[in-house]
């Protein structure tokens, strides 16, 4: 199957362990929810095309990082080449919300000289009865950092598409206005004006025509 995309954005998904990063991404890329999910070790990779306007497709390359602290040293190296990020906390786990600040600080200190567009995601919003973080305080925090706030549920597929497409649109707008530019040696945004071949792993006969110097 061939697909043409305007840009490829590399997104990173961060947040405390067990907030549901992998499940959210799997819902988005595979359209299903896994009841059982093993902890991510290091980093996992997903990708999906998003059509932000008719005919305008963006390829998202999503890096699903391990939330566990023991992998922090590795995962923080992945900020630099990301253009956008979803910062997740679990609305039923207050600590994960309290750690949002630390995550942002860590990201900001490792992303330089580039910038990263973040979206704050309150995950597991299907578990309303166990909620420990109100929408108001989360919105307030997001506002303080200049981020959007979205509440999602991978289990019930609430706002999952919305979260990713909103972030993609925001980044796309910044790319269009030139605030984010494609740079040599930076993987955050890649141009896809030349038709690229999206080939599955089984199609091993085609060669990769892109030049990634």
């Amino acid at each position: 199957m061939e697909a043409i995309w305007l840009y490829q954005f590399r997104l990173i998904v961060i947040g405390d362990s067990t907030v549901g990063k992998s499940c959210l991404i799997r819902r988005f890329t595979e359209g299903r929810f896994a009841q059982v999910s093993d902890p991510t070790v290091g980093v996992d990779f997903f990708s999906r095309l998003v059509e932000i306007e008719p005919g305008k497709r963006i390829k998202l390359q999503i890096w699903d990082t391990a939330g566990q602290e023991r992998f922090r040293s590795i995962t923080r190296a992945y900020y630099r080449n990301s253009v956008g990020g979803l910062l997740l906390f679990d609305i039923t786990n207050r600590r994960s919300f309290q750690n949002v600040h630390d995550w942002l600080e860590e990201a900001r200190s490792h992303v330089q000289p580039h910038n990263i567009v973040f979206l704050l995601v309150g995950h597991k919003c299907d578990l309303e009865a166990q909620r420990e973080v109100t929408r108001q305080e989360a919105e307030k925090l997001a506002g303080a950092y200049g981020m959007r706030y979205v509440e999602t549920s991978a289990r019930d597929a609430i706002n999952v598409e919305h979260a990713f497409t909103e972030l993609t649109r925001d980044i796309f707008a910044l790319v269009r206005t030139g605030e984010i530019t494609i740079q040599e040696g930076w993987e955050g945004v890649k141009s896809g004006f030349v038709p690229n071949v999206v080939h599955s792993s089984e199609e091993v006969t085609k060669s990769d025509r892109r030049c990634l110097c």
């Binding site: 199957m1 896994a34 999910s37 095309l49 998003v50 080939h199 599955s200």
Partner: peptide, 20 residues
Amino acid sequence: MANTTTGTRDRRDSRCGLSG
């Protein structure tokens, strides 16, 4: 528009454990 790679190779998906 779904990416062609996801799901094709990831048949095992044991991490995900689709109970169904």
